[in-house]
Design a protein around this nucleic acid. Structure first.
Lengths: 192, 192
DNA sequence: CGATTCTTTGAAAACAGTCAATCTGTGTGG
DNA sequence: CCACACAGATTGACTGTTTTCAAAGAATCG
């Protein structure tokens, strides 16, 4: 399973095999079957997690018990509740596998150690964070500036690898739209 | 004007006066009067900018000519179009002063140089980026999970320093709601 | 097959957007 | 000091979109 990560990282940065070894030494491999949780509300997110295979969602539950999906993450993505990870406070989010998945996890201290030891890796992760911020910005723009229909089209365009692997009601939850509305939008735009 | 920045930074990290000097050497001070632009769509955002005084907004214009505010930034905040800054591509956003403002600007290369020279400063900026990501996440959650009215209340709670300094229609633009709707929401919640 | 999950549909109600007109306050120039 | 222009806020009437609720119809999985 580590091979997936190795391939992923080698494609992005140049890294020696001894460095890769070090990374592997500190990582824990884990299989997460569908519907199982990687993180539950109230727990502290103290691991850096890489999805080697599968698909997960990160969501919060509001006061009425409704779930709102903040992120999907599939193979070759990192996932964590940044807030809990950074502050050390209990998380208000859940991370659940949508498909049977395989993940690699590093304890926070170990991960910090790796970043210190391997500057290229550190730089790479920094770039990822920055890209994430750009994505967030664009999502905010999409959410505040467009109709439900446009959001749906944009989602399909921006997440081709996700939208046909998750049930429609999860896309609705991600977009902040009711499932019925999204179902109707889809119906009316057949053929377009 | 640099004194504002000095105070700001000294409160956050421990830094020597020679380091502060270096930072000052490379920075350009600028006064931006109300309605003037710090960045215009199409230009490349190649500066790191710190607001010493005043208030600005970052917004994009959609296909129908409507403005959508992505961020407000007031004194002691950093502002830039991250996407353009990171990629070097022309920006699709505008940054405009809402009040007469004073800003400090560093050229991208100079700023990179400073971060290399002053590790504590680098670490500090990295933390800021991470906090920004947490904020973005929370804003996304707010936008996809709550009604216009709740968004308005949350905005007042989260941005006490902003909401009574900007016209209501800008708050509406930030929340992704029409100004009329926001006007009615406000009226109906007088006394609450 | 039976159970569960997911999707669709209809009808009503709530919500938000648009358009057009009016009102308010502020600041400017005569 | 007044008149005027201007930006911002409000209101009403109307339209359109989205949610909600309830029910029923696929699809999937064990």
């Amino acid at each position: 399973m580590f091979a997936v990560f190795e391939t992923y990282l080698s494609k992005q940065i140049s890294i020696t095999s001894s460095e890769l070894n070090l990374i592997q030494t500190l990582c824990v491999e884990q299989k997460i079957s569908k519907h199982r949780f990687i993180l539950r509300e109230g727990a502290i997110c103290d691991k850096a997690i890489f999805i080697a295979r599968g698909l997960v969602r990160l969501y919060r539950v509001d006061g009425e018990g409704n779930e709102h999906i903040l992120r999907f993450a599939m193979e070759n993505c990192w996932i964590s509740d940044r807030e809990s990870y950074l502050t050390g406070n209990p998380s208000n989010a859940n991370i659940e596998a949508i498909e049977d998945s395989e993940v690699l996890a590093w304890k926070k201290e170990d991960f910090r150690f790796l970043l210190m030891q391997i500057p290229a890796f550190k730089q790479f992760m920094k770039n990822l964070v920055e890209k994430g911020q750009v994505d967030s910005q664009n999502r905010i723009y999409s959410v505040i500036s467009t109709s439900a229909q446009e959001k749906y089209f944009q989602f399909m365009a921006n997440h081709p690898g996700v939208f046909n692997r998750v049930p429609l009601h999860m896309v609705a939850s991600y977009l902040g739209v009711s499932r019925e509305t999204l179902s109707r939008i889809r119906r009316h735009s057949i053929g377009k």
